[in-house]
Amino acid sequence: MSHSPAILTRPFEGRKAWTAATIDERDWRVPVSTACREEMLNFVAFMRRHPLPLLLRRPEHFEMPHTRELMERVRWILEHGALHAVIDRLPVEQMSDPEATVLYWILASLLGRPVPQKWDGTMIYEVTDTGAAYEYGVRASVTSVDITFHSDNIFSDWPPRYVGLLCLRPALSGGLSRLLSYPSLYNLLLAEYPQHLPRLYRPFPFNRQMEHAPDAPRVSYYPVFAYEGRLQVRCYVTLIRRGYAITGEPIDPETEAALVALKEATSRPQLWCEYRLERGQVQFVNNFETGHARTDFVDAPEPERKRLLIRLWVRDEGPVFFEEPIIDEQRQPLTVN
């Protein structure tokens, strides 16, 4: 017998429930101190003397007290403050792009365990325009199109807790980052669209973007909102609509109205924080409680000047794999630590 999920009926308060009118750059910008900068440069010099593949690098290989302090500040913001933070910035002018990527890997590792971002095990993901058309099986992150508010990997049992972006090269124009507090989004829906919340607590089919084994289902089912002492949001209207298209299920009037309300609510500029990531800056977001978006952009004509960001996913929960391991012959989950 199924039970209806409990629906939160009170608004969120405090730092997490920020809006454009209440958030300030000082809430999310984390400057790199002189001591921390020197420590980072010393780490790069250490790397040059002691080569090692990136995936084997660990924070404990090098004494980094100032960097650890920096990342504890970032963690506090992600969990208790603005829910997103920008480290300003890595001294990238004194290192190569691969060296900057390793330093960034170390920063992310101080927050938790980096995990694969694709079914094939890809750990380091380049966010850049490949020239591909945005269609089934193509992620918007490898195009130049506008990306609406969403969280990453919401079609999985184990979305990343934190999503990181290192800016190696910004676009010639456009490509602005937009952030949205899901607690504030929930408050708006509770105030203006309370009749649609029950539907948003029930599962939708999400397009899995072909990130699965060949014989696995092409969609997965999850609600947009879940609350068990803490809000967790799976918001991506585009993937939901594509999920319905894949399954052939009709979108009933209740579902259509809920999706329209969700889309309209996320379109309110008064909920947004918007800025441009510059070279050397690192953004981390709380993937459960923050929606992120990106405006479309125009690249420089020279390939070496094209927009390039490096994305990492971090979570300590669940298996290290992209999806829950399955015993093929029985199609049963394995227990993997």
Rank of each mutant, 00 (worst) to 15 (best):
M1Y: 15
P5Y: 14
P11H: 08
E13N: 09
R15Y: 11
K16I: 05
A20F: 10
A21M: 02
I23P: 02
E25N: 10
A35Y: 04
C36G: 07
F46W: 14
R48S: 06
R49L: 13
H50D: 03
R57V: 08
E63C: 11
E63Y: 13
P65E: 03
E72N: 13
I77S: 08
L78T: 07
G81F: 10
A82F: 10
A85V: 08
D88H: 12
R89M: 05
P91L: 10
S96T: 13
Y104K: 01
W105E: 00
I106L: 11
A108C: 10
G112V: 05
P114V: 10
V115S: 03
V115W: 12
K118A: 14
K118D: 07
T122D: 06
M123I: 14
Y125A: 02
E126G: 10
E126R: 15
A133Y: 06
R139Q: 08
T143L: 06
I147W: 04
T148M: 08
F155V: 01
F155D: 01
W158D: 00
G164R: 06
C167R: 02
G175S: 03
G175Y: 11
S177T: 04
L179F: 12
S181V: 05
P183S: 01
S184L: 03
S184P: 02
L190V: 00
E192G: 00
H196L: 00
L197Q: 00
P205W: 09
H212L: 14
H212W: 13
A213S: 11
A213I: 07
P214K: 11
P217Y: 12
S220A: 15
F225N: 06
A226E: 15
A226K: 15
Y227W: 15
Y227P: 12
V237P: 03
V237Y: 09
L239R: 06
R242C: 04
Y244K: 01
E249R: 11
I251D: 00
I251Q: 02
D252N: 05
T255R: 04
T255A: 07
K263R: 11
P269I: 09
Q270N: 09
L271K: 10
L271S: 08
W272Q: 05
C273A: 12
Y275W: 15
R276N: 06
G280K: 05
V282A: 10
F284L: 06
N287K: 13
R294L: 08
P301Q: 07
P303S: 12
E304L: 09
R305P: 02
L308N: 03
R311K: 13
V314L: 07
E324L: 13
D328K: 11
D328E: 11
L334A: 12
T335Q: 10
